[in-house]
Amino acid sequence: MIGNKQIITIKGTREGLSLHMDDACSFEELLKELEEKLAANRIDSADQIVGVHIQLGNRYLEKEQEELLCRMITSKQRLRIESVHSEVITKQAAIEWKEEAEVKAVSRVVRSGQVLEVKGDLLLLGDVNPGGCVTATGNIFVMGNLLGIAHAGKDGNTDAVIAASYMNPTQLRIASYISRAPDHETDGVYMECGHIDDEQQKIIIDRLQAVVRKRPGISSFERRMLNG
């Protein structure tokens, strides 16, 4: 029965080719059919490179398996892998995912020389003193005085923001951007929020309301689930 049924279905869409791979067969069978399919359709080397979206269904691929699959597709044809989508993830990945999307509430003073690191968003009930440092892979919200260093979007999330009740930091860091306090003494600002301005390509500090308008999804869990 399986012999008759196609394991791989190819569909053309506006975004390129969509490869639906059956999830009921073994990985070896899948590779075998893929190889046949790829060999059957020769494409001229002058042709344009076509993007491919792979739909794995309920199949979970190890990293090596995924690489093998992608390598096979790109080496045989003038194709480029755009995305690999699977309906399932491992428990470990799910836990990490959850951690990334969670808001961690911490109640303490981060003092000089101390580093507070969290995954996901950080909600700090307390101060960050000069010389202290807080980092998060997501956003940072400080209910207190932010006088030290805050690093949001540590793993490269440039959408992350840093908000504080009172903000007079030595440095603000978001993803790979760094901004520091001016050399002259400043008074600091209340209820403001630092974020990356896409036009100026640097960190700017703005009123909370203005930032919420620019980052509408700041508090939505679903958005982060979709973005992964």
């Binding site: 000089s112 020389g113 000069p130 010389g131």
Partner: peptide, 16 residues
Amino acid sequence: EKPSVRDADRIIGLLE
């Protein structure tokens, strides 16, 4: 003085 307060903050962190 700032340096002294900074170090005091550090030491309080350690004492905690």
